[in-house]
C-alpha cells in the first residue's frame, strides 16, 4: 500500500536515511525498531512531507507522493502522531481534535462520527474536552495526539514513539488501543524503541540502524532473533 524505494534524506553532508526500501501492507501493523538516531523519525517525517527526500521515491497505492506538501499528504490519507506530540497546548482538547479533522472539515457529519470514535477509544478525553491540551498528563496528551491524527480518518496512521516518557501501565493501555485501531482497519506504521511491547502487537517489523534497514521480517522472527533480543530487549 505504502512503498518506500531507495529513500535517502540528507542534512547537508549528513545522510540521515541511506537508500531505505520498505513496504507497508494494507491493514497491517508494522513496527519500525531502532535506537535514537537510527533514522525512524526522519523516515516518518519524510513520509509526512515535513522533510524532502534527496533520493528515492515514496508511493501510496502506486501513486507517487514524495515531494508533496504536508497538507497534501494528509489529504491523501496519511496522518502522523509525531514525536513530542506537537499539540496546540493552549487550545482545548476539543479544539485540538477538531483541528485534526481540518482537511475534512466540510463533512460535518463525518467529523462528528470521528469525534465519537475517538471519545469511545479514550473516554477520559470527553471529560477533559474543554481543558487546555497542555494541562493534561503525559499519557492523556498522547491520547489527544493519537486522537487528533485519527480525526483525519487516515488510511495509514504513522505513530512516532507514542510510549516515550509514559508510565509502564499507561504504555500497555496505549498499545492495546493502538491494536484496537488497527483491528478496525487502519494500517499502522509504528516507530518504537520499546521493542518488547511493540513486537507483541505487530504483524511485521523492520529494524533500522544509522539510517539504513538492517533486518526485516515477521514480528515473531524479529522477536526471536538473538541479536535483536540482546540489543533491544535485553532479555
Amino acid at each position: 500500500m505504502l512503498e518506500l524505494e531507495n529513500l535517502s534524506v540528507s542534512f547537508g553532508s549528513f545522510m540521515a536515511l541511506r537508500s531505505v526500501s520498505m513496504e507497508v501492507r494494507q491493514g497491517e501493523l508494522l513496527v519500525l525498531l531502532g535506537a535514537n538516531g537510527a533514522g525512524k523519525t526522519t523516515l516518518l517525517k519524510t513520509i509526512s512531507g515535513l522533510l524532502r527526500p534527496s533520493g528515492g521515491v515514496i508511493t501510496l497505492q502506486g501513486k507517487k507522493i514524495s515531494g508533496l506538501s504536508p497538507s497534501q499528504i494528509v489529504r491523501h490519507g496519511i496522518s502522523q502522531c509525531a514525536e513530542g506530540r506537537r499539540l496546540f497546548a493552549q487550545m482545548s482538547v476539543y479544539k485540538n481534535l477538531l483541528l485534526g479533522a481540518y482537511t475534512c472539515r466540510k463533512d460535518k457529519k463525518g467529523v462528528e462520527k470521528s469525534l465519537a470514535y475517538v471519545y469511545s477509544l479514550y473516554p477520559i478525553l470527553k471529560e477533559k474536552e474543554n481543558d487546555p491540551a497542555g494541562s493534561l498528563s503525559g499519557g492523556q496528551q498522547q491520547m489527544v495526539a493519537i486522537g487528533r491524527a485519527l480525526m483525519a480518518r487516515p488510511g495509514v496512521l504513522l505513530l512516532d514513539e507514542p510510549s516515550m516518557g509514559l508510565a509502564p501501565l499507561v504504555v500497555q493501555q496505549m498499545f492495546d488501543t493502538i491494536e484496537a485501531i488497527n483491528r478496525e482497519g487502519t494500517t499502522i506504521l509504528l516507530a518504537e524503541q520499546n521493542a518488547y511491547t511493540a513486537l507483541k502487537i505487530a504483524h511485521r517489523a523492520y529494524v533500522m540502524e544509522s539510517g539504513a534497514v538492517v533486518m526485516s521480517g515477521s514480528s515473531q522472527d524479529i522477536a526471536g532473533n538473538e541479536q535483536i533480543r540482546q540489543a533491544y530487549i535485553g532479555a
Partner: peptide
C-alpha cells in the same frame, strides 16, 4: 562516503528544516 558531519552543519540545517 559522506565525511563525518560537522555539528554546526547538522544543527544549522536541522533548524532550517524545522522552520518549515
Amino acid at each position: 562516503e559522506a565525511p563525518p558531519v560537522l555539528a554546526a552543519d547538522h544543527a544549522k540545517t536541522k533548524s532550517e528544516e524545522l522552520r518549515g
